[in-house]
Simulated assay, not measured.
Amino acid sequence: MARFADYFIVVGYDHEKAGSGEGCGKIIQRFPKKDWDGTAFPQGVEMFSQPGGWRLSRDRKAPTFFTVVLTDIESDRHYCSCLTFYEAEVNLQGSKSIEADGDDDEEAEENGLIQPAQVFAPKSLIIVSRLDYPEIFRGCLGLIYTVHIDSLNFPLEGLVSNLFTFQVPVAGGSQKLFSLGAGDRQLIQTPLNDTLPVTSKSVALLFQQLGIQNVLSLFCAVLTEHKILFHSTSYQRLGEACRALEALMFPLKYSYPYIPILPSRLLEVLSSPTPFIIGVHSMFQTEIQDLLDVIIADLDGGTIKIPECIHLSPLPEPLLHQTQTSLSLVLHPDLEIADNAFPPPRTAPSNLKLL
């Protein structure tokens, strides 16, 4: 049995350090306040919860969710599920002192006075766990967020404390039902085997984004210990792509740096001499173009860039042809009957579930 969640953290914008340049985040609350025995509190979580940097916004952005993977000194992974929303604040110093997204509006000053400007500051709710249940954590964070925003008559302390009391079997394939105490029902399906990777739709999504040939190239690259960098405008897609590529290695285990979402302040890690699997936001495309020994995969554009100094050995024949043919039939099940004059009615479910 394993504890469902290890820590619950609230991270907000640090106004005390909001000088010139990029803002910072700070931990407003953490539960529990003392570290668990054998499970240290993750360091740098405030930086990973806003990978693109902490910035105020002139608009209230929609809440976002993604999962950050942190690896401790003992190579144990901690999954940080982050739900970020924006709260309204009033800047009494006027709009000219706001570090907000976009261009500063030139507001008219009446009678020599600068009018107060309303801005929105990001705040992140984070669940840290050694278990990888992103959709369950998304539901739990969504419930806590709803209770907070709508001021529902449920004590937030009770909801958070229930995160730590629930015990989950590591494997076995059983279903466990629990509640945070707000009239909700959360259902966990444990994996049949704790050694098999649980990928959900991430592998199928990677093939859809990059295509069969590109994914096979990345597969050969990761097996031959090359540096692989994903970039996308979606943090969630970055995490899914890294998860899928690592799962394709099974039963081998990846022992090099694995950072599905790399914060802006740690971009120098990309110059590391060791192999890695890393994901960065596409806003940093300019910074990553000069990397000469890194294979770059554009998840949104569906392309990969292999530097001239890297030679990838493809899968040997006939394995390569057999693999491509099998994957084509899974990704495109209508391929076999595409030329039939009288194709049969399609009643079978999509083969994408096989990936």
Rank of each mutant, 00 (worst) to 15 (best):
A121G: 05
I114H: 12
D103H: 03
D132K: 14
L143M: 09
G142V: 08
Q93K: 11
G102R: 02
V68W: 06
T64Y: 04
G139E: 04
P63T: 15
D105P: 00
N111H: 01
A121Q: 07
R130H: 03
V119N: 06
A62W: 03
I127Q: 07
S97D: 03
I98F: 10
G102H: 02
C82A: 11
E135Y: 01
V68H: 05
G102Q: 02
D72E: 05
S81P: 02
H78Y: 02
G139K: 11
I136W: 14
R130L: 00
L113C: 07
S124A: 15
L125C: 11
E109P: 04
T71L: 08
L143I: 15
I136D: 08
K96G: 00
F65K: 02
G112K: 08
S97R: 15
Q93R: 10
A88T: 05
D59I: 15
Y133E: 04
G139V: 00
V90M: 12
L83Y: 07
K96F: 00
V90P: 00
A121M: 07
T71S: 12
G94Q: 10
V68K: 01
D132I: 08
A88P: 11
V68T: 07
G139D: 02
D104S: 09
V69W: 11
K96M: 00
S75F: 08
Y79D: 04
D76L: 04
D76Y: 05
Y133H: 10
F85Y: 12
F65E: 09
I98G: 06
S129E: 13
Q115A: 06
K61Q: 05
H78C: 09
I136F: 14
E74S: 08
Y145V: 03
S97A: 11
R60M: 15
E135A: 00
L113Q: 10
A108R: 04
A121E: 15
L143T: 15
T71C: 12
D59K: 15
F120W: 12
I127S: 06
D103M: 02
T71Q: 12
R60F: 14
S81M: 07
R77V: 09
T71F: 08
S95E: 15
D132M: 13
S81F: 10
F65N: 07
E107R: 01
P63Q: 06
V68Q: 11
C140N: 03
T67G: 04
N91Q: 14
E135I: 00
E99A: 07
A100S: 06
L125T: 01
L70E: 10
R138V: 00
R77S: 08
S129F: 10
T146R: 13
Y145G: 04
E74D: 13
I144A: 03
D103F: 04
E87K: 15
L143R: 14
V128S: 15
Y133N: 04
G112E: 01
T71N: 09
P63I: 14
I73W: 00
I73K: 07
I114E: 12
D105I: 12
S95A: 14
I98S: 11
V69D: 11
H78N: 06
V128Q: 09
S129V: 03
F66V: 02
A117S: 13
Y79S: 06
S81A: 13
T67H: 08
F66P: 07
F85V: 02
D72G: 01
C82Q: 06
K123E: 01
